[in-house]
Design a protein around this nucleic acid. Structure first.
Length: 266
RNA sequence: GCCGAGGUAGCUCAGCUUGGUAGAGCACUUGACUGAAAAUCAAGGUGUCCCCAGUUCAAAUCUGGGCCUCGGCA
């Protein structure tokens, strides 16, 4: 599973984890394996997924990488180096206090040639973090070495009206299944409000409700809107990749996907 | 019916005092993305400024009338 929210333990509803029945039928990897109070990174995912894929292949099975975390998927299938420098939370906290102008000034003192979005604090802080540990130039740290296996990229899509309808239904369903209670339980367990899992769609909105910023009757609509925006962002990311073969998700796409894989001699 | 507040972008609203190219946030569309990525950042379009008349070189802005909404009083 290539999903930056399903990796976390305890938060099941709005992360859209597979049902217990589904988990019994198929062996899933990388679902619920991480402490929700911490941050699980793209690098950790690539390492774990690479190991899981090797294990699956060793058992003579075909690995399926499923999910919507685009950077994670590309990092895995394209073999991004991810710079080879670990995050340093304490230094990040210091840098977060600085205005973007100072961050970009600091960046260019470390590496005048650095190519970074100079108005994006998250990007600037990461670039500074890499340069402070590894030194310039930044560009040298960002390489790609594709994996030994060959990915077959499959995209599922539907017309936007259908996607929007599904997302609205799913948002209502998640609330009915106890999303707010699950969010409260996570907070009580000690998951920080700014932990990645609680910034995910569904939990972010549930927190707004808990903080009195949105009414209960508006919650499903606000969730659906966040989902719509993200679905479009995912489609935009995927659209640029010419290696993807697309299938219509409105009818059961599995038979045609299997046919397609046969043609690929897999 | 009377009193008060209001009517400007899809939504919430600023601008009106002192007339001079109609704005912000959100939404939407597009783009960026190499250890936070469901995060983060950027660019872009959007208008009977409720209607009619008047004043004026010029009205969202000033004046008069009308319509509508909300609140209070009856």
């Amino acid at each position: 599973m290539c999903d930056s929210r399903q990796v976390y333990d305890r938060l099941d509803i709005a992360t859209n984890k597979p049902s217990p029945e589904a988990m019994r039928q198929v062996r899933y990897h990388l679902v619920g394996i991480a402490d929700p109070r911490a941050t699980y990174t793209a690098f950790e995912f690539v390492e774990a997924a690479t190991g899981a894929i090797a294990g699956i292949a060793a058992r003579g099975k075909l690995a399926i990488v499923e999910g919507g975390s685009m950077l994670w998927a590309d990092a895995l299938t394209e073999g991004f180096s991810l710079a080879g420098v670990e995050p340093r939370p304490q230094r990040r906290a210091e840098l977060e206090q600085l205005p973007v102008e100072e961050l970009s000034g600091l960046l260019y003192r470390l590496d005048p040639e650095a190519v970074v979005d100079t108005r994006n604090p998250v990007r600037l802080i990461r670039a500074i973090e890499i340069l402070e540990v590894a030194g310039p130039p930044l560009a040298r740290r960002r390489t790609r070495r594709p994996p030994a296996w060959t990915p077959v990229r499959i995209g599922l899509t539907a017309d936007l009206g259908t996607i929007d309808k599904w997302l609205a239904e799913r948002s209502r369903d998640q609330l009915a299944r106890g999303l707010v209670e699950e969010t409260r339980a996570a907070l009580a367990f000690g998951v920080p409000p700014d932990a990645p899992v609680l910034t995910g769609i569904g939990y972010a909105e549930a927190m707004m409700y808990i903080n009195g910023e949105v009414a209960l009757e508006d919650l499903a609509g606000v969730m659906a809107r966040s989902n719509r925006r993200y679905a479009r962002r995912q489609l935009r990311w995927l659209r640029r990749n010419p290696a993807i073969t697309w299938f219509d998700a409105t009818a059961n796409p599995v038979p045609r996907i299997l046919e397609f894989l046969q043609e690929q001699r897999l």
